[in-house]
Design a protein around this nucleic acid. Structure first.
Lengths: 237, 237
DNA sequence: CTCTGTCCGTGTGTTATCGCACATAGCGTG
DNA sequence: CACGCTATGTGCGATAACACACGGACAGAG
């Protein structure tokens, strides 16, 4: 992680953008731009959290690591949200690791500054709680989806969610990486991905996936994608 | 649902019990005892919510119903929590149905009264947000568990969670009912339950399950049960 | 241009679960 | 006590996913 020189204004964090000007101005001096590389660990499971992060171009996975080493993603955060909700929910830590799934930029804010503004109980608090509600919906739907849908459907949903946060048709990730997010074997991803490639919905090679036909991709995904999206639009759109 | 005559003090709601006396006294006039029967629907998916509920002896399932009718539980609330978090998180509704899994009592509070107290930003708010954080952990762990663990492990975890909220060794529920919670076929529950009965960990007959050996049951469950319990104890213990 | 590590393809056997069909048994009702 | 309903047992073929193994192909480093 390194400091970047200029604020990435072209693709702002949407929570910060939704704040009243007065609040935004008050917080601005406390927003420091940072750059994340793929694979960076933002927070370790159960570890102290000093900052909250408002992604702009980066996106971050919340994942759980079992004692036997298997992993599964429970949530995904891009420029629509923030990472570190435990710091205002009162937990201070979480059992999940937060790791960078897409390299890019974010703003960070000292936990104490965020908490002071949160305690004012105004727009900032309302916004953060509403976002947390959408995150709860996302996690709930992941629970349901993990139980009731096929690997192929879940792969489609996951690519759509990632696509929304990537702002590019090319996703840089290997089958191996995706299998760790979806909690399945790498071979299962290879199989599902190949079927999608044969249908000319995606194409891929050596860690680069290109989304060719987003409409078809949405048709192949389960309803979970739309449920989460609709709930997000309702609460923060 | 019917009004009961006396407040069930023997088994209080633990959130209410944790409030400072001053706050509790202020809220008391707004707490109305209600009794739930098995199967009652507390909130319908996407429907208006007029009250929040603090269970005492009842416990309530949060479950998602797919368009094809399949269901899966995402969370379980007993006297350690409350139902209706969307009312202070700012969502007002949720995509999940809340349904009574164990008959019993609860206190209800008008949404507006709850919101007024919440906005004071004091003990009540802190407590509710902390509880919400434990619920997020529960939902997250359900997501992971649904993906990575066997039906038998998940059945054990689910019975433990229910046992904690039932305050009795006898759970009144059929295999069919449990299968709807865990999102599996009824036959899969029958199989797993029979294995547990053969090991003399539980016994059951016609909708009555008796937990014979809770220690063994914990051994058969996955780590998810302990993770959620530990996080709850850390935040609200 | 060769080497090496990463990424993906593919096969085989095994297990878990589904989907369905039907049998059996207890319970309440009339 | 006969009946019907509900709860559970059981079998079987189909499918999805796991676990493991190994081969091929490409990219980048040197």
């Amino acid at each position: 992680m390194s400091q970047s020189q200029t604020l990435p204004q072209s693709n702002p964090n949407r929570l910060l953008a939704a704040l009243p000007a007065e609040v935004y101005q008050r917080l601005l001096p406390n927003l420091k731009p940072v750059t994340f590389a793929l694979g960076d660990i933002v927070y370790e499971s159960q570890a102290h959290m000093e900052y909250v992060y408002f992604p702009t171009t980066a996106h971050i996975s919340l994942l759980y690591i079992m004692t036997n080493g298997m992993t599964a993603e429970v949530g995904l955060v891009g420029n629509e949200g923030l990472v570190g909700i435990a710091l205002f929910m009162g937990g201070d830590t979480t059992p999940n690791r937060a790791t960078v799934q897409g390299a890019g930029d974010a703003f960070r804010m000292q936990a104490s500054v965020m908490q002071d503004e949160f305690k004012r109980g105004e727009a900032f608090q309302l916004l953060l709680l509403r976002y947390t509600q959408t995150l709860i919906t996302q996690i709930s739907q992941t629970a349901v989806c993990n139980r009731l849908h096929t690997t192929e459907q879940r792969l489609c949903r996951w690519m759509l969610m990632t696509h929304d946060r990537t702002h590019s048709d090319e996703l840089q990730m290997t089958h191996e990486f995706i299998s760790n997010m979806l909690g399945v074997q790498r071979e299962a991803i290879s199989l599902a991905a190949r079927r999608l490639q044969e249908s000319e919905i995606i194409s891929y090679a050596r860690g680069h996936i290109r989304i060719l036909d987003r409409q078809e991709l949405e048709k192949c995904a389960c309803e979970c994608y739309q449920v989460v999206k609709a709930e997000h639009d309702r609460l923060l759109g």
